[in-house]
Design a protein around this nucleic acid. Structure first.
Lengths: 340, 340
DNA sequence: AGAAGCGATGTAATCGATTTCAACGGGGAC
DNA sequence: GTCCCCGTTGAAATCGATTACATCGCTTCT
């Protein structure tokens, strides 16, 4: 491995000049710069990050803390983050908040340790108190958020819910249920508020019995389907707080011999990749995941560069993706009759 | 941020002693050790990784190079890697081979740069030549592999294919097709060999026309379905080289008004999470993804620790997961009759 | 008694890049 | 002609942890 010293010797200049050529080329004369760059080219020199980071008092990486690394939802977001970080010379460290025993203390450890120059937090369940660490690097919340003391990147959650409910309404539905995320989760709370607000503006009844509990997972969607089937007062359409739950819900409904959208219309949230390939294809609210990652990374880099903490909230638009899991209930009944 | 010096001063010893207490406690006397640890406790000291890495001539992280970070298949594997690396003080860097313009040169850059102490490669399409870099850190191939000059962790791909074909055979199928992965991909080649071998041992005909081209993606599965439908000589069962393709295939089949497994039995490979929630639920070959990640990480750590390159290949068993996308073709026809 | 051995600890060099400060040479202003 | 300034460059300090080597007491062996 060639070092700065080697380049300096080869180019007949001092290490200071080499360093300047690489990081602040405006300061060195044209001819010298050429000589240095030639030496760099010849040796295939690459900076030693450990040395640079030590000298510059930084860690050279940022951490993404996700609630569950095994959840495919995050992979695309990570790709977005990575694409912004890499050109800036930062590495992306990923860690799982659920992996260890005590998420809060692990978070605190990351903040204190100088392990990273910044942190992107995807888990809204951590305690705000854990963030209160002296000299902690900047933190950006993404997707989920904690209070309003942290800069964050999120999507139009309530608006997405309203889009979903209005779409079901436009299709002719008047009884619309909601399949929730984990109790207390900010995304879930906000989407549920959007759901209730939309019902209100549309003059539709809301009914506590139409709210089914879930936790965003496939399995919880399937379990909710069983409760839906057993419910004599069940709504004719379900807005699910995540696509995974919507998929689980539809799967279980159909395994029970019922049909989507004939017997129940379903709409999800996220637009995960399989949504377009389910039977029926899933109507949903699209979240631009790569964009979320990019924005969060950019926001964090800006905070690192300026050493300032401006608590801004970036809201990313969502949109309805119409597919075939929603139908007019009247038509559906007719179809039911002909089919039998 | 407290440094080693601070601890040394506080405990009334030298930095050498503090360092030893932390990394090799056996070398220091009981009493001194206690004093040092008390000082560490009091200040909340954490090592500066940049300094340690510089001194120890290592990067402190390993890179996972995946062909496509946005592919959910990898998230669980990354979780497995991460769980092994974190306790050992290594960070996990993730990078996407497809993100930039020239994957090979990016790979070479990672190897040369001292950016990482090791590399886990999930992309079998890179050229072996790109790996030939002086002083490159150890590399482990996982899932896919390149030639046999690299240690690797993989699953029983051919055996998985045989399990799949035999299962279809046992269900009564005699015409069994194969939906391929990308041409030239090692996983695809191996699974196809397993498929052909199984046909041969079962005394079944093989037919070039029954081999449909795909590339592991959902969309390619859907496109293959269109070709299958248009094919007068189509096989009665399809073994798909990936679950994503199987999902895409089933979805498109059913959107065309046909039914799985009534009109065609389908079996996938991977056991991705949604497989159990598709309509119908997807019979498939399970790959233990977390385990793959853990094994690859352990193998790499061993190589880093011993500085040796022993070219071992670890093969991880797969198993058939029976669900409901496979049916006896005779029964299926009967069901068809009753249903209409 | 003297040498040798051993456990515990300190001194100081070292990793490689960045950056402050000083120095140098030449051009323009007075 | 002298002075000053500016562009360019180099010498050397610095970041924080690790570790080879030296040192110092003591015990133990001959």
């Amino acid at each position: 491995m060639a070092t700065l010293q080697d380049i300096a010797r080869l180019a007949g200049v001092s290490t200071a000049t080499v360093s300047r050529t690489l990081s602040n080329p405006g300061l060195v004369a044209e001819a010298t710069r050429a000589a240095v760059l030639a030496a760099v080219e010849q040796t295939g020199y690459q900076v030693n990050h450990a040395a640079r980071n030590l000298r510059m008092q930084r860690a050279g990486s940022i951490i993404a803390l996700v609630p569950n690394l095994a959840n495919p939802f995050f992979s695309q977001i990570l790709a977005g983050i990575s694409s912004v970080l890499t050109p800036e010379g930062f590495g992306l460290l990923v860690a799982d908040t659920q992996a260890g025993p005590d998420p809060d203390s692990r978070l605190r450890q990351y903040l204190r340790g100088g392990v990273a120059d910044g942190l992107i937090l995807f888990d809204g369940n951590l305690s705000l108190a854990a963030l209160d660490v002296p000299d902690s690097p900047p933190v950006v919340a993404a997707c989920e958020w904690l209070g309003d003391t942290l800069p964050s990147v999120r999507v139009e959650n309530a608006h997405g819910a309203e889009l979903a409910v209005r779409h079901l309404f436009d299709a002719g539905h008047r009884t619309i249920g909601y399949l929730t995320g984990p109790k207390g989760n900010v995304l879930n709370v906000t989407r549920q508020e959007g759901y209730l607000a939309a019902l209100a503006t549309l003059g539709l009844p809301s009914n506590q019995a139409w709210i089914y509990e879930g936790d965003f997972s496939l399995d919880s969607g399937a379990m909710a389907a069983a409760r839906w089937i057993a419910d004599p007062m069940r709504p004719g359409a379900m807005f699910c707080a995540s696509d995974e739950m919507a998929c689980g819900f539809m799967g279980a409904i159909q395994r029970a011999g019922l049909h989507v959208p004939r017997d129940v219309s379903v709409i999800g949230f996220d637009n995960i990749e399989v949504a377009a390939h389910m039977t029926p294809t899933l109507t949903t609210i699209r979240q631009p995941r790569t964009l979320i990652g990019e924005r969060a990374a950019n926001m964090l880099l800006k905070m690192i560069a300026t050493k300032s903490i401006n608590i801004e909230t970036e809201i990313i638009p969502v949109e309805l993706v119409e597919r075939s899991s929603v139908a007019n209930p009247a038509h559906a009944s007719r179809a039911l009759v002909t089919q039998n």
